Computed example of a mutant assay.
Amino acid sequence: MPTNIKYLCIDDQQDSTIDPLLARLESDGLIEFERWTPKNLEDQLPAIEGFIRAQKGAFGLLLDLRLDVDADENGNRVSYRGPTLAQELRTRMAEKQIPSFPITLWSVNTKFQKSYFGDESSHDLFDGVFGKDREVTDCPDAVAKKLSALAVGYESLRSLNKESLISTLGLTNETSSPLYSQFLDEYSQIFTENATHEVAHFILNELLKVEGLLVSEEMIAARLGVSISDSIGEWEKVKDSFGAAKYEGPFYQAWPRWWWFRVEDWWANLPHENCELGSLTSAERVSLLNEIFNAKLVESKPILPEYSSQFSTLCVGTSAPLDPVDGLRVVRRSSRNWQDTLYVSIHAALERLGRDNWRLDPLERDRLAWIKEESGSNG
């Protein structure tokens, strides 16, 4: 990954508070920061445009949520917050006054709870949101990797043209699946009609950060019946063999994903007697893989002993493999046809596990109420 990536950080807190956090993000050498305190908007916007013009490589912006709390050394305090500045910059990107680049947000968790999470109107402005007292403190390497991938991804998208629109995702016209057609139609339309940052948001939010056309390593393992944590050293043998399915489009460095249709092709071409993946238990899937790859994989176990092990998804409450017959559908903020339906296991729903990560589909609420009643009457 390139190392000449510069982020502008605008934050109103004192250097003694912010500088150690920025130093942690810089420690791997992926990115470097230029640190500013906020100015009045009429001065801030031209200054940011000057920063942009000075960049020779990939770049981005890291904003504090509350820019209006602390005064600078001269006692001046601005009257706007991070989302206000981000909105003006996004508008200028749409009007092609400035190039598109990633805008990310950070703050302490208490300020997020008070001033950000309840206002969804500002969420689409940002490519990443990081807690100073959580992700940045606990996982600085992972945050730096995301910041770097965002800057590099935007740089590639700024030079994208209609001819390279599909190939930049690593796709060709190899599949006639209706789901791929729907995705590519909307992707092409957004590219034609919208600014680069909206193309970036579409790829990030509607393709990379959801399971569907692209899937995570954890989802592949669940569908193959493999427990990654119990198969350390062995899982890599299998993972390497479907490497051709890896997504290598924008932002791939921090969001490793695989094209599921290519993983399915990989499975179909393995030397077995036409075994449909979905018809096998996790033990049967793993037995086949162990035989083919001379491995010692360990199968995933169901969340409860009575649950099915014909896994095809992950429980959003526990992240454990799940057969949807043992789950309840949940809703998400938006959904596309090419994205997988999300499920929470009945067990997680009853125990309210991972409750911040899911909300039941309204059609499933009566079913859960009935299950609660039955379990209560039997208990």
Rank of each mutant, 00 (worst) to 15 (best):
F51L: 04
F51H: 09
I52F: 00
R53C: 11
R53V: 13
A54K: 14
Q55H: 06
Q55W: 00
Q55I: 00
G57P: 09
A58M: 08
F59H: 09
F59V: 00
G60A: 13
L62S: 09
L62G: 13
L63K: 10
L65V: 00
L67T: 04
L67E: 09
L67A: 11
L67D: 12
D68Q: 13
D68C: 12
D68F: 03
D70C: 15
D70M: 14
A71G: 12
D72Q: 12
D72S: 13
N74G: 13
G75S: 14
N76R: 15
V78Q: 07
S79Y: 12
S79P: 07
S79A: 15
R81D: 11
G82M: 03
G82S: 12
T84A: 11
Q87D: 08
Q87H: 07
Q87I: 05
E88M: 13
E88L: 15
R90A: 07
R90Y: 02
R90E: 03
R90D: 05
T91S: 11
T91R: 14
T91P: 03
R92L: 09
R92I: 05
A94S: 14
E95I: 05
K96D: 14
K96P: 05
Q97A: 07
Q97Y: 05
Q97I: 10
I98V: 13
I98Q: 03
P99M: 02
P99Q: 04
S100P: 02
I103Y: 01
I103V: 10
T104Y: 02
V108I: 11
V108W: 11
N109H: 11
F112C: 00
F112D: 01
F112Y: 15
F112P: 00
Q113V: 12
S115W: 10
Y116M: 10
F117Y: 15
F117S: 11
G118S: 14
G118K: 12
G118H: 09
D119V: 10
E120T: 11
S121H: 09
S122F: 03
D124K: 10
D124C: 08
G128S: 08
V129S: 08
F130V: 01
F130W: 07
G131L: 00
G131K: 03
K132T: 02
K132I: 00
K132M: 09
K132A: 15
D133T: 08
R134D: 15
V136F: 00
T137C: 08
T137V: 06
T137A: 14
T137E: 12
D138V: 11
C139L: 11
D141R: 07
D141I: 03
A142T: 06
V143P: 01
V143I: 09
V143N: 02
A144I: 02
A144S: 10
K146D: 06
S148Y: 02
L150W: 01
V152F: 05
V152R: 03
G153S: 05
G153W: 05
Y154F: 13
Y154W: 04
Y154C: 06
E155L: 04
E155M: 03
E155F: 04
S156V: 02
